Amino acid sequence: QKPVSAYALFFRDTQAAIKGQNPNATFGEVSKIVASMWDSLGEEQKQVYKRKTEAAKKEYLKALAAYR
């Protein structure tokens, strides 16, 4: 399975908490809140997710090379 983006990892980590705080929110509303949070996130915090994405990408490429 291809690795997901840094934003997708952040979304996955954040979505449940947002939904818990806003139980009646639609998926679209939750998405807007998470997107706003991502935009206001500091670069250092974004780097945490970007590093996770890079590590997953390297593992994916290694597994793909081994498969071929």
Rank of each mutant, 00 (worst) to 15 (best):
Q1I: 11
P3G: 13
P3K: 11
P3D: 15
P3R: 08
P3Q: 05
P3N: 08
V4H: 07
V4C: 10
V4Y: 06
V4K: 07
S5D: 14
S5R: 04
S5Y: 01
S5I: 00
A6W: 01
A6F: 02
A6C: 04
A6I: 01
A8K: 12
A8D: 13
L9P: 00
L9S: 13
F10Y: 13
F11Q: 08
F11R: 08
R12D: 03
R12G: 06
R12E: 13
D13F: 03
D13I: 03
T14I: 05
T14E: 05
Q15G: 02
Q15P: 00
Q15D: 02
Q15E: 10
A17P: 03
A17F: 10
I18F: 01
I18A: 02
I18D: 00
I18T: 01
G20T: 13
Q21C: 06
Q21S: 11
Q21N: 13
N22G: 00
N22P: 01
P23F: 00
P23Y: 00
P23C: 02
P23G: 02
P23M: 01
N24F: 08
A25F: 10
A25K: 08
A25L: 08
T26Q: 07
T26C: 06
F27W: 09
F27V: 12
F27R: 13
F27G: 10
G28A: 10
E29S: 04
V30E: 03
S31V: 05
S31H: 06
S31C: 08
S31Q: 10
K32F: 03
K32R: 11
I33R: 08
I33A: 09
I33V: 08
I33C: 05
V34D: 02
V34Q: 00
V34L: 03
V34H: 00
A35W: 08
A35D: 06
A35H: 12
A35M: 06
A35S: 11
S36H: 10
W38N: 01
W38T: 00
W38M: 04
W38Q: 03
W38E: 02
W38S: 00
D39Q: 12
D39C: 11
D39I: 04
D39L: 06
S40R: 12
S40F: 01
S40C: 04
S40Q: 12
L41E: 00
L41C: 02
G42F: 00
G42A: 10
G42T: 13
E43Q: 12
E43S: 09
Q45K: 13
Q45Y: 04
K46S: 01
K46R: 10
Q47R: 11
Q47L: 07
R51K: 13
R51Q: 11
K52L: 03
K52N: 08
E54H: 05
E54A: 10
E54R: 07
E54Q: 08
A55G: 11
A55R: 10
A55W: 05
A56D: 11
A56P: 06
K57M: 13
K58C: 10
E59M: 03
E59T: 10
Y60T: 15
L61T: 14
K62A: 11
K62W: 01
K62M: 07
K62N: 10
K62T: 11
K62C: 05
K62D: 12
A63N: 14
A63H: 15
A63R: 14
L64H: 15
L64Y: 08
L64G: 15
L64F: 06
A65L: 11
A65Y: 03
A66P: 15
A66F: 03
Y67W: 08
Y67S: 15
R68N: 15
R68Y: 05
